[in-house]
Design a protein around this nucleic acid. Structure first.
Length: 464
DNA sequence: GGAACTCGCCAC
DNA sequence: AAACGTGGCGAGTTCC
């Protein structure tokens, strides 16, 4: 939902967004080069693949049934038709429902049915997404081979930013194929290269600063809370995150528990996800993680090695959740309760950066907004300072886009090292000198593209 | 024939 | 007691 609030802001907050708007305007004017020929070629290739896969489905028994039901209206891309075919005609019981209480046809729901044609539907959806949402948008939006994505500061309830035309804040990163195809279309100016900077875990850093929770500060600055929680959740003696089989357990702790819990999720949703991560993992001695959990008495497996009964595991995750919020991060929980009470009394919640969120909010929103907004303001401040330097010092390097906690600069090779050093200095030193409420060190990772190479080639590197 | 809605899916 | 925070966008469908 898009929520727009007109709220009182301090002078500092106003100034930050005023400068931010000017810096974004310059980034937008600069824009990014698109290889249009490449985009059109890739779109053609994707279309060929899509047609091939669609034909395969159409000619299958499944597809013929579908066609009989819909006749001339048969449409491969229609989720309505898929839902009707599966859940009404074939009378399959949906594993989950949509918000509108209809049977879901998302990836999870379709893949759970084990029908090969539905896996092709999923594959086609991904290809269409890459072809139309990304490559299509680049071709449509480019002017003389350059796109000028907009970065908005007036649309988001948390005082973060958004991006459109085209949206440069959701370019595929996780899926390797989608990442390659989309990112290989985007280039710096001719003869130039990308320089990037990324704050590490900045929302958690903001949580440390707001809540002053000593354990959270300890874990964020020195420890590894994802590993610690994985050890608790999966009842391990130790966890080596560099081991191929065990690293998935840490990922499970991180993406299946710690992050969702911070956003307000609960054990009932976390437990099944934790088991999905476990299914991909094994211990150093070769034991599959699920077999390990069975040995610990937390799950019962069926003959195929899948989870048959997870009731004990769910109870276990509930216990860990209780430990997480009421023992380990007790002060964090107390802060959340205080903050919620304060909002109920006053009707707003304030950020260190001078922004005020008001309007009707629930407890999760009240406690998440300050972290989310303030984290973005850190990046925005760095973006503004780098932009200021670029223009006042007459650099041949310019910030061109940002994604909430990371930013990318189109640099001339003779300036690349200098720009990286400046970005690093501003983010890790100058920022906390100007904003004295930042009382823990903020860590960043640096990224480097190659001369005349696309965004796909941008990789982490260590500052010389 | 366009506006509004739903669903699915990409990012942090 | 209930149970995931913030966005943009494309396609299909339904409403008017």
């Amino acid at each position: 939902m898009t929520r727009i609030r007109t709220t009182p802001m301090t002078k500092d907050a106003y100034d930050l967004f005023h400068s931010g708007t000017l810096a974004f305007a310059r980034a937008e004017r600069m824009g990014l080069r698109i290889d249009v020929t490449y985009c059109l070629e890739q779109q053609k290739k994707l279309t060929a693949k899509i047609v091939h896969l669609k034909d395969k489905v159409t000619h299958s028994k499944f597809g013929q049934h579908w066609k009989r039901v819909y006749g001339a209206k048969y449409n491969f891309n229609s989720d309505y038709q898929i839902a009707h075919l599966l859940y009404d005609v074939k009378k399959i019981k949906p594993i989950k429902k949509t918000n509108g209480q209809r049977g879901s046809t998302d990836e999870e729901a379709l893949s759970a049915l084990g029908i090969p044609e539905l896996n092709l539907v999923i594959k086609v959806r991904k290809l269409i997404k890459v072809r139309d949402t990304y490559l299509g948008a680049y071709v449509r939006e480019q002017v003389n081979g350059v796109v000028h994505p907009s970065f908005n500061l007036h649309l988001v309830g948390t005082f973060r930013s958004s991006s459109d035309s085209p949206n440069f804040q959701n370019i595929p990163k996780r899926d390797e194929e989608a990442r390659r195809i989309t990112r290989s279309a985007i280039f710096p100016r001719k003869g130039c290269q990308f320089a990037g900077m990324d704050f590490s875990g900045i929302e958690v850093c903001m949580a440390c600063i707001y809540t002053e929770d000593p354990q959270l500060i300890q874990d964020t600055t020195q420890g590894d809370m994802h590993r610690d929680m994985a050890i608790e959740l999966y009842m391990l003696d130790s966890l080596d995150k560099h081991h191929a089989g065990e690293k998935n357990l840490r990922q499970g702790g991180k993406n299946g528990f710690v992050f969702p819990e911070f956003y307000g999720d609960y054990y009932g949703n976390c437990a099944p996800n934790l088991l999905k991560w476990a299914a991909k993992a094994y211990l150093k001695d070769g034991t599959p993680a699920l077999a390990h959990l069975e040995k610990k008495g937390l799950v019962k497996l069926n003959r195929a090695g899948g989870v048959q009964n997870s009731a004990k595991f769910i109870t276990h995750v509930k216990k860990i959740e209780d430990y997480f919020w009421n023992v380990r991060y007790k002060k964090y929980t107390q802060w959340k309760n205080r903050s919620w009470k304060n909002y109920q009394k006053k009707g707003y919640v304030d950020m260190f950066t001078g922004f005020r969120c008001s309007g009707l909010m629930n407890k999760k929103e009240v406690t998440n907004y300050p972290f989310q907004g303030t984290a973005f303001h850190c990046l925005l401040k760095v973006f503004i300072e780098v932009d200021k330097l670029a223009y006042s010092k007459d650099w041949n390097s310019f910030p061109v886009f940002q994604v909430h906690d990371d930013m990318t600069v189109d640099t001339h090779p003779t300036e690349f090292d200098m720009v990286g050093k400046e970005m690093h200095r501003i983010a890790t030193e100058e920022l906390s000198q100007q904003w004295t409420w930042i009382n823990i060190p903020l860590k960043v990772e640096m990224e480097k593209g190659e001369v005349d190479q696309s965004l796909f080639e941008k990789k982490f590197y260590v500052l010389p």
